[in-house]
Amino acid sequence: MRPIIRVENLTHTYGVNTPFCRSAVKDVSMEIYEGEFLGIIGHTGSGKSTLIQHLNGLLQPTGGKIYLGDRDIWADPKKIRDVRFQVGLVFQYPEYQLFEETVYKDVSFGPKNMGLDGKEIDRRVRSALQFVGLGEDMLEKSPFDLSGGQKRRVAIAGVIAMEPKVLILDEPSAGLDPAGRRSLLENIREYHRKKGTTVVMVSHSMDEVAENVDRIVVLANAGIVMSGTPHEVFSHAQELMDVGLNVPQVTQVAMELKRRGVDIDPAVYTVADLRRALNDLRGGRA
């Protein structure tokens, strides 16, 4: 697969020359491949948010380079806005950035900034709202009259409407109830499947990441400690726990079974896999 974003030896230090000087990201190198669904996990303060704000040029690295395609995004600082249109970033609790009178106007803020014509904006707004599961009846409502979950969806649609090549979501399901969480993640998966765009999801919920992504990057203490498929990553359960993270609940069950002498792969990470593994143990009977 072709990398769409390449991070080379990225370092970001806050508060240079002050007593509060601290590196939030230290010498990180990674690649994001075209069309993949990547999960970035790490506990609070591991540098996740700082890392992703570099990917669309909101923060400028204090060391290292970031390539989008094969162009250094800071080669021409005047063109940094183009990078932001190509790498869409949805912040944590994005509902707090809504400001327009109607849902339609708010979602069209991004496309408008891109300088698109009215017809194209209209198409993008409608299609973006469809992806996040909001109906046409929402278009003329005030975003401030919506429920928390709907607001979140409007805000995500605001980024999707720019039709970025890479969509980055920082904890998209934080603070939602379980049903809202499930359906929002379903919408994001659907978006990834239908559009084929690269999606990066930042989370600290192992279960959420395990069920959705193709590949995982684990951050801890300002650096990458592990990366690979969920199976590869979750087979290093002990290392994950050492950096203050956990493994999915399903994996925990499998690990405990293994510890008690059951012959099972401890790195299963979805309910379906665990069920299959247990069935195999019973001799293939359902």
């Binding site: 704000q53 669309n56 909101l58 806005r81 932001r84 249109f85 869409g88 970033l89 949805v90 912040f91 994005p94 707090y96 950035q97 803020f109 991004g110 900034n113 891109m114 605001g158 980024v159 720019m162």
Partner: peptide
Amino acid sequence: KIMSAQKARG
């Protein structure tokens, strides 16, 4: 935070 979020939308 809000400035960053709006900048991300261009």
